[in-house]
Design a protein around this nucleic acid. Structure first.
Lengths: 172, 172
DNA sequence: GAGTATAGAGAACGACCGTTCTCCGATCAA
DNA sequence: TTGATCGGAGAACGGTCGTTCTCTATACTC
């Protein structure tokens, strides 16, 4: 196993555990066990837990935005595609809301910078999709609102995405 | 200092610290120091940290909903009053988003039951304000969305509440 | 093949957590 | 005044955390 595979395995384990259970609730030993990467190597690749947390969020940021961008890129109705994509996300097993909002809530002002960068990037993407910066602000509220409501649903529930889509349709 | 005052002081300290820094990041010693209530009494009034966390959220639930209810009760435009109230909340010093969403994100499925009860109660209140259950679902998305967006703003920012209000105006 | 660097496995370390216990001074009944 | 009860202050306990260290086996250099 070379360093690159070890990195991938560590980030996979970190993402699964941090997202599912929260960052402070998961210790480094859990990540070592889940990834199969020895502790020594873990600390060579990520010098401290903070670095692993930041790397987890960075990778998730890229993946999440790339996926959403791909879903809206060639769509006939890009705004509608955003909410279709959200509906699919909400019903994925293990969905537990926005990882960045969860991290910000848990870590407070000490959260990694990628949290705010992620929201800025989402705002930019929504500006492209919606056609204006003003529309982006409205869409952002709808996206965040649907995500927050869905994250508190007892089971998988695409309905908040559908309702947010309705609202978006009335933006004029 | 009788038990009632000790309770109040403990809940005041717990609310300030848990909300500002997160639940897991604040130890019982910090609460004891901030409240001035001895540890022994703390554990007599709240047999474990879980109980204190639940009581903190319960009290906040009552206060938050009572305040919002009071703001909308006699208003000429109850829906508009919701978003005015949100704008004022967003600009309070120390605003850091929805305490219940933060707790759910941090504690995962182990979060106290009051988290979901709070959201159900908010939905009910919005149904009264909006006049129908369907309208309540839409308003809930707007309220949660504005709160999430405001919580990630660098400084105090009532703008998400104003934008959500605009959106609510187009509900028809 | 001898010597050296490397990596894995997991024990060990210091710090801190939630919780309990010990001690001691204050209070009150007789 | 004495003796019993209570409450406060904070030390102590067991456990867990993030991080480092030790030990050993292996791989590689000459």
């Amino acid at each position: 196993m070379d360093d690159e595979e070890a990195r991938t395995r560590l980030l996979d384990a970190a993402e699964e555990l941090f997202y599912a259970e929260g960052i402070q609730a998961v210790g480094m030993d859990r990540i070592r066990t889940a990834s199969g990467v020895p502790l020594k190597r873990l600390y060579r690749l990520f010098p401290a837990k903070d670095a692993l947390v930041a790397a987890y969020l960075e990778r998730r940021d890229r993946r999440w935005l790339d996926s959403l961008r791909a879903a809206t890129a060639g769509a006939a109705d890009p705004v509608g595609a955003v909410f279709d994509w959200l509906a699919a996300w909400f019903t994925e097993p293990g969905f537990r809301g926005c990882a960045f909002l969860n991290a910000a809530g848990e870590l407070g002002p000490g959260a990694p910078a990628v949290v705010r960068r992620h929201k800025a990037a989402l705002r930019d993407l929504l500006a492209e999709v919606g056609g204006s910066a003003e529309r982006a602000e409205h869409l952002l509220i709808l996206v965040e609102g649907a995500t927050a409501v869905a994250s508190l649903s007892p089971g998988p529930d695409p309905a908040p995405a559908h309702r947010a889509r309705e609202l978006a349709g009335r933006l004029g």
